[in-house]
Amino acid sequence: MSTEETLQSKFPAAGLKCSQFRDNRRVVVPAESLQPLLAFMKGDLGFDFLAEITAVDYLEYEGATDRFGVVYVVVNTKTGERLVIKTFVNDPDPVLPSAYSLWKSADWLEREVYDMFGIKFSGHPDLRRILTPDEFSAYPLRKDYPLKGRGERHNFPVITRADS
């Protein structure tokens, strides 16, 4: 039985959508079933390696219904099986359960998603901004944030020769 079938039979009510594109096998899961599904994959199916957590802002994407997609790439290091798990969250308060209790690599990856998209992870031990300065107020990878920013990059005092 393939992993997708196992997941379908384990979570029949969740309405998992499985698909394949090139060699990527993907499972789309509703946000409320995410935590049990990840725990089942880690605990019972042996997906012990979390390669990647990232998010996509679908604000300007043609035909998209949800605002944010969050993507987990998990690997079974014994068999080399790789699975892409995706879920959707929406404004105004995008929150997902943290995967830190399952994989420690989720720590910084979730902090980056929070920093760049403003998606909160409940249960994360230390959810702070990581790449941008603490006083930064925007979420730069959201599509409504301009590429050149809102002038933050030039909001500094000038030192002239006479000062130094």
Binding site: D48, F49, A51, W103, K104, S105
Partner: peptide, 9 residues
């Protein structure tokens, strides 16, 4: 074990 759990490659 830590390597795998913490995503080290």
């Amino acid at each position: 074990e830590d390597c795998i759990n913490m995503g080290v490659t």
